[in-house]
Nucleic acid binder design. Structure first.
Ligand SMILES: [Mn+2]
Ligand SMILES: [Mn+2]
Ligand SMILES: [Mn+2]
Ligand SMILES: [Mn+2]
Lengths: 223, 223
DNA sequence: ACTAATTTTTAGGGTTGTCTAAAAATTAAT
DNA sequence: ATTAATTTTTAGACAACCCTAAAAATTAGT
């Protein structure tokens, strides 16, 4: 029997985990296929393998749930991914839109010591460059229950805590707008017509579409 | 056509390069198989692929030579391997017998920026933890023409510059003996019978077998 | 409830990289 | 120069992933 896990299997487990976070239902074949840029038929094949290995619970036509073992693996990969992202930004001068692609490879390097030492070296960061929480060694994740900027009312103030969409395009847009993690934002006005928002930050005024405001996690300021 | 290089292909090219350094002949199928812990038939298969891609010159039954393109790739991998080894020792508290296995994985991460920045971050190291030279960005390697400790005569002094065998077993043996890179060694006596050597370093005396002395690169001290 | 649309699975194949066993070529030994 | 030993290649197969096209199951629409 093959006891070693492959990179592909790791990517599948991670994808399933991330998809299962945003819902309580079984993760569908199609959603996995879309996330991994592959075909549904390939996903079905792989799901069977993951099921044989007891990493997912699978009922035909009903999608999958991660088992405890599967979840543990997924979280370990996610932890490595995010630690590497921190490393790249903090020490190797990468920008937040450059790290994902490289972390996608680095996350598969197998060495317990490497992960631990990297974590220590980075001084146990809690969040990655996109504001996503980094699981600790035991797999605990600070569940970010932050709200979206789009949910903030007029005249309220908040701080940008993370991005939902971490595509290169979105991150570059934010850079060009001067919006980063930690930026203090005040909602000045909301257009009823298209839900776009006038915001004020660092003295600058800007109008942002709902597509933007729906992809920014914020922390409300207490009154 | 498949333009992307696989990890396996990279490992083959690196192996062929390292084997070609110690000789001027074509690299044999069997030697590659041995180095990569695989079977000769698998090597023949892969050699054909590498040959199709113009990374090796291959004549049936005559072994292979790297082409210029193949050599470039091999050197790039070697560079990454050794840079990562330096990183692991310098920043993540790895010992020199632990780094190889992890670097074997890290060397395959694809990102020009990563390599460059890592190099800069490490302050452009010239040698890895085993004393092996690190190719620069243009692929130039400081050809270490050091001699073996076994070739040093009685009463001569030298400095340990590198290890030829970098197996965990050998490195651990050196650790337990207190021998490291930079250690100053004087040859006190050589046994004619088994070529073992009595050496003196850091006040300690030791007898080392030829197997040891033949695997240590040294730099002779000028008189 | 019954069709229609969508999702998921199966069937059949392709590629990469590996293996064992047998055949062919090369090299070494007499 | 033959024969024997060794090296290398071929033949045939298998595992991991991926694909397209067709079939089956589920879900949505009326
Ligand atoms: Mn990945
Ligand atoms: Mn991230
Ligand atoms: Mn490798
Ligand atoms: Mn090394």
């Amino acid at each position: 029997m093959n006891t070693q896990i492959s990179q592909t299997e790791e990517n599948y487990l991670k994808a399933i985990f991330r998809l299962s976070l945003s819902q309580n239902k079984a993760v569908s074949t199609n959603s996995i296929a879309e996330k991994l840029n592959t075909k549904a038929s390939s996903v079905t094949d792989m799901i069977k393998k993951l099921s044989d290995k007891k990493w997912v619970d699978y009922v035909k036509y009903q999608g999958v749930f991660l088992t405890l073992a599967g979840k543990k693996i997924a979280i370990r990969i996610l932890r490595k991914h995010r630690l590497w992202e921190v490393f790249l930004v903090k020490h190797l001068d990468f920008t937040w839109d450059e790290v994902h692609e490289v972390a996608e490879q680095l996350e598969h390097v197998k060495s317990e010591k490497l992960t631990q030492q990297l974590d220590a070296y980075l001084e146990y960061p809690t969040h990655d460059p996109h504001g996503d929480p980094i699981p600790d060694e035991d797999g605990n994740i600070a569940h970010h229950k932050e709200i979206m900027l789009s949910a903030i009312s007029c005249n309220e103030k908040c701080t940008i805590m993370g991005v939902k969409d971490s595509s290169v395009a979105f991150l570059k847009y934010l850079d060009s707008s001067g919006i980063q993690l930690g930026t203090l934002v005040e909602v000045v006005k909301k257009e009823a017509f298209d839900q776009s928002m006038h915001i004020l930050f660092e003295g600058k005024k800007r109008n942002i579409s709902q597509q933007i405001s729906k992809n920014l996690f914020v922390k409300k300021h207490r009154l």
